[in-house]
Design a protein around this nucleic acid. Structure first.
Length: 502
RNA sequence: GGCGCAUUCGUCUAGCCAGGUUCAGGACGCCGCCCUCUCAAGGCGGUAACACGGGUUCAAAUCCCGUAUGCGCCA
């Protein structure tokens, strides 16, 4: 591990309760997915619990559609939780929109104990005062004008129905955030102004809601993005004011785009569901997300979700930023696809064939379909990559594309070469691997006998059987169509050529 | 602007906490070679980094201080 948090207290966590708290204001973002993964790994790796909490206090931007996407995406990744809006639990409700009473009670308690106060300053007044302070070259912090309000003045404002917010009275002294990654982060409370904990419409502010939720949900470890590190200072203050012990924190680094800026839409696809649709394996995505900012300490890089659970540890987490590298994700996806059997791969590819309207392929007998998919697998980076290349198997016999036609014309021994191919195919027959390999070998031998390179025969073979210049290994072509089928296709190509020439 | 966090190859990182075994290891990418019926895959090899400046020490990527840069939060 690098950085300032060189030696924070380590050791296994004892039955931690952690939470993942997304706002359903968009599809599950890769950065959020990484946070969810970290929380899940910590919970599953130490016998703890994971709580899913939806921070849906912004009705304008929150939607059920996004809530659905978040839950579906998490499930797709293989993550589940012990408590949440969909599964219930003893600490609910798990939607912030359903918890306003709890926030109100806590705000009133802080008010009653003098740890918070009502503020009647309007946004316009605040802005004017802020401007004048800033223009005089000083740092603006709320000036506590309403803290010293006379009782009579307050009553007048109340009776006039003046809208008010509730501000937290930040105490003097220094505040310490215990971060498992960065060590102790100490900040002078004087740097923090009396932040708003209840908005003028009566709804809870972000800080109050988070802290009240974390207390009532008995969260022991808060694992979230670095962007909340300075917010944690406010949270520690609030935990104290509410008579609770602050949880341990872990603020992991943020996910950046290739240009170093926070990963966003302009870098391309940023939601988990986008990657799902592009044909990435969930295990590759979780593996990659874990690898950004985490290392097992040795050279291993390929991990299944289960392996991550047993290997993951806070000690292996890095504190510095992580740039999302699409190339490496692609590579990892390839590595995980390699581990799949033909059957498993075919099962995963099938939905994409369906989505792209490849009915003819899907109508193939299962073993043919598997063979088709197997034959193109090493050219695949994602599941969708099976779609185009497998079309070769439903091309009508005798059709020749321009490039293939030009290549056939280049051969000075075309007729003889194709004759050899047909002869070898007809005499050998069969369609299993052994037969197919035998045919290819015999053609190599035949070429050699004539003092030719193998290419003189095998290249026309490919061109004539498929009508294309690129495609799977010849052995697969023979296995798919069978030796006789290939012979027929070559004959069909010959007829096409004759018709064309004349 | 104030405060906070971060800083090892282009990218992700190992090494740093317990300074010497490292003119810094792995992976992706890129380049080359091999293999080869095509495209790939695969094998082999190569490219490339301790942000900068001080200090401590016999010795610093590793400890301390400062600067710079990036990012974040508050406004």
């Amino acid at each position: 591990m690098r950085g300032g948090g060189m030696s924070p207290a380590e050791g296994p966590l004892a039955n931690p309760r952690v939470r993942f708290a997304p706002s359903p204001t968009g599809k599950l973002h890769l950065g959020s997915a990484r946070t969810a993964l970290f929380n899940w790994l910590v919970a599953r790796g130490s016998g703890g619990s994971l709580v899913l909490r939806l921070e849906d206090t912004d009705p304008e931007r929150s939607s059920e559609e996004f809530e659905r996407d978040i839950i579906d995406s998490l499930h797709w990744m293989g993550l589940e939780w012990d408590e949440g809006p969909d599964v219930g639990g003893a600490h609910g409700p798990y939607r912030q929109s359903e918890r306003s009473d709890i926030y109100r009670e806590n705000a009133e308690r802080l008010l009653a104990e003098g740890k918070a106060y009502r503020c009647y300053c309007t946004p316009g007044e605040l802005e004017a005062r802020r401007k004048s302070v800033v223009s005089s070259g000083r740092a603006w912090r709320y000036d506590r004008r309403c803290l010293g309000l006379e009782a009579a003045e307050r009553e007048r404002l109340e009776s006039e129905g003046a809208p008010s917010t509730v501000r937290f009275l930040v105490p003097e002294g220094s505040v310490t955030v215990e971060d498992m990654l960065r060590g102790e982060v100490v900040v002078d409370a004087g740097e923090i102004d009396d932040f708003i904990i209840v908005r003028s419409d009566g709804s809870a502010g972000f800080h109050l809601a988070v802290v009240v939720d974390d207390i009532t949900m008995e969260i022991t470890h808060v694992i979230r993005g670095d962007d909340h590190l300075t917010n944690a200072v406010r949270h520690v203050l609030l935990f104290g004011a509410l008579g609770a012990t602050a949880p341990k924190f872990l603020h992991h680094s943020l996910l950046m785009g290739p240009d170093g800026a926070k990963l966003s839409k302009r870098h391309g696809s940023t939601s988990v569901s986008d990657y799902r649709e592009k044909g990435y394996l969930p295990v590759a995505l979780t593996n990659y997300l874990a690898l950004l900012s985490w290392s097992p300490g040795d050279d291993r890089e390929i991990f299944t979700l289960g392996e991550l659970v047993s290997e993951f540890g806070i000690a292996g987490v890095s504190a510095s930023k992580a740039i999302f590298d699409f190339d490496k994700l692609n590579w990892l996806n390839r590595q995980h696809m390699k581990k799949l059997s033909s059957g498993e791969l075919t099962d995963m590819v099938a939905p994409f064939l369906e989505r792209e309207g490849r009915a003819e392929l899907l109508a193939l007998p299962r073993e043919k379909l598997e063979l088709a998919v197997e034959s193109v697998r090493n050219g695949m980076e994602t599941l969708t990559d099976a779609v185009g290349p497998t079309d070769i198997y439903v091309r009508p016999a005798g059709s020749i594309d321009d490039k293939a036609g030009a290549e056939l014309d280049k051969s000075d021994v075309l007729d003889e070469a194709l004759g050899l191919c047909i002869e070898a195919l007809r005499s050998a027959g069969g369609s299993d691997r052994e037969a197919a390999e035998g045919i290819v070998e015999s053609l190599r031998a035949a070429a050699k006998e004539r003092g030719w390179g193998a290419k003189k025969v095998l290249w026309p073979f490919r061109l004539a059987v498929t009508g294309l210049t690129v495609g799977p290994d010849l052995v697969y072509l023979i296995m798919f169509w069978g030796a006789d089928g290939c012979a027929e296709r070559i004959e069909a190509t010959r007829r096409t050529l004759e018709a064309r020439d004349g």
